[in-house]
Design a protein around this nucleic acid. Structure first.
Length: 422
RNA sequence: GGAGAGGUGUCCGAGUGGCUUAAGGAGCACGCUUGGAAAGCGUGUGUGCGGGCAACCGCACCGAGGGUUCGAAUCCCUCUCUCUCCGCCA
């Protein structure tokens, strides 16, 4: 949620920047500013009436004490008028605030100056590419065939007990999953992140805090009886740790990492995109979340990018980094870098990480602030990234490392798997 | 699931309709005191919104939302969360 004072002072700038998302926010922002104008004048009026009413009430108390009943009753009549007036204004104010809230929720975050205008993923900018496409030779197989051949993943069994998109990992496949989770967590901890195990279900407020609600309602699994949502990413519970908190300046940046399964309904996906491990309803991911001082958040973003590059390099994967264009960026992000690995048998890039700076967009909703040198409260910046999402890393590892007589395990994972080949 | 007790500021904790402008204590900050420290003394110490160049002023907030009243932390209703006991249970 954008800050009102920002929209007041930088209206044109905001509209220009938002146009990079290929939306015209002019009307919406005008509505917001009008509502804000109304809200403020109404507030002033309401406060004045309440102040007068408070004073009269105090006088009535005193008059009763002195036994001046008649005078007190006279004043009572006066307040009844004020009361009905204040009630009307109060209702109006509530209505204005609700409308203002709705309108503010409808405006996505303002893209950073580096973000290029664009409609879709076709216009994303490739900012870096590392490594080379492995040469697999004639008889290479896609990961779903390899998974079958080496008895690593049972998609059919998942369908039987849950449905499509819920694979069952087994044997060395399960072990490799566990190895990657541990490896990623260990690397994140070494880089200064503190490890957490958050709940996998969150309440409604948490959904609003990070921006999944109200607009992405249908993308989450919802347990109606208890009104809880299955987390689509650890970002949701972990970032919400800090909801309604005022953190200490010296504690920044706060760096968290967590492994969780992620649950996504993925309504509307189809075709080759969903084959094998490419898109799942349940998958494992290790996430990093940063709460930062506004002046430091872009340095941190650079560090996060560097850190994730390190992971991919250690795994020996051919990868590239994209800076998303306005139209492909998530609603709440100011800037996003996607990491894609080359899946050699499918001959396509697979997204394995998405790193974003949300600036104050999330913290404004969360009411996540720090106390500055000036002793006042200011909104923090929040950032997060996957480090990493497992299924597509697994897909790429299986495909890229396949050999005549098995699949090679990257050196860094061997201490975790206990085997060097599948 | 059943029964009971609770939710007050950064924390502890008093407060059953108006001298509450939320007592008192702790913590924290600053000052005094001291050779230095502790103790002691003094002062300050929440959040949000509105107004103002500012000092400052006003309004709201005692789990949440309604209600009664001229006036609610206090009375009434609904919801919610926590704790204790019982039941069930990895």
């Amino acid at each position: 949620m954008l800050e009102l004072h920002y929209l007041r002072d930088h209206k044109k700038e905001a509209i220009d920047a938002l146009s990079k998302r290929k939306i015209d926010a002019t009307e919406l922002i005008n509505t917001i500013l009008e509502l804000d104008e109304k809200r403020r004048s109404n507030q002033t009026e309401l406060d004045a009436i309440l102040a007068e009413s408070n004073n009269i009430s105090k006088s009535i108390g005193l008059l009763y004490k002195e036994g001046k009943r008649d005078e007190a009753n006279l004043l009572k009549e006066k307040t009844s008028v004020l009361k009905s007036k204040s009630k009307d204004l109060d209702h109006l104010q509530q209505e204005i605030k609700d409308n203002l809230q709705q309108a503010l929720w409808a405006v996505p975050n303002v893209p950073n100056e580096k973000v290029r205008a664009g409609n879709s993923e076709a216009e994303n900018e490739e900012v870096k590419i590392v490594g080379e496409k492995p040469n697999l030779g004639e008889n290479n197989k896609a990961h779903w065939d390899l998974a079958d051949q080496y008895d690593l993943i049972d998609f059919e069994l998942g369908v039987k007990i849950s449905g499509a998109g819920f694979p069952v990992y087994k044997g060395k496949g399960a072990r490799l999953q566990r190895a990657m989770i541990n490896f990623f967590l260990d690397e994140n901890c070494k880089a200064g992140y503190k490890e957490y195990q958050p709940p996998h279900f969150v309440n409604e407020e948490s959904g609003y805090g990070t921006g999944q609600l109200p607009d992405k309602e249908g993308q989450m699994y919802h347990m109606q009886d208890d009104n809880l949502y299955a987390i689509p990413t650890a970002e949701v519970p972990v970032t919400n740790f800090f909801r309604d908190e005022i953190v200490k300046l010296e504690d920044l940046p706060i760096q968290c990492t967590a492994y969780t399964p992620c649950f996504r309904r993925e309504a509307g996906s189809y075709g080759k995109d969903v084959r094998g491990l490419n898109r799942l309803h349940q998958f494992d991911k290790v996430e990093i979340v940063n709460v930062a001082h506004p002046d430091k958040s872009y340095d941190l973003l650079a560090q996060m990018v560097k850190h994730i590059e390190g992971l991919l390099e250690k795994l020996g994967l051919h990868y590239r980094i994209l800076r998303l264009c306005g139209g492909d960026m998530g609603f709440t992000a100011a800037i996003t870098y996607d990491f894609e690995v080359w899946s050699a048998a499918q001959e396509r890039w697979l997204e394995v990480s998405s790193v974003s700076n949300f600036e104050t967009y999330q913290s404004n909703r969360l009411k996540l602030r720090y106390r500055g040198e000036d002793n006042k409260t200011h909104l923090c910046h929040t950032l997060n990234g996957s480090s990493l999402a497992l299924p597509r890393v697994l897909a790429a590892l299986l495909e890229n490392n396949q050999m005549e007589d098995g699949i090679r395990i990257p050196e860094v994972l061997i201490p975790y798997t206990g085997f060097d080949k599948i």
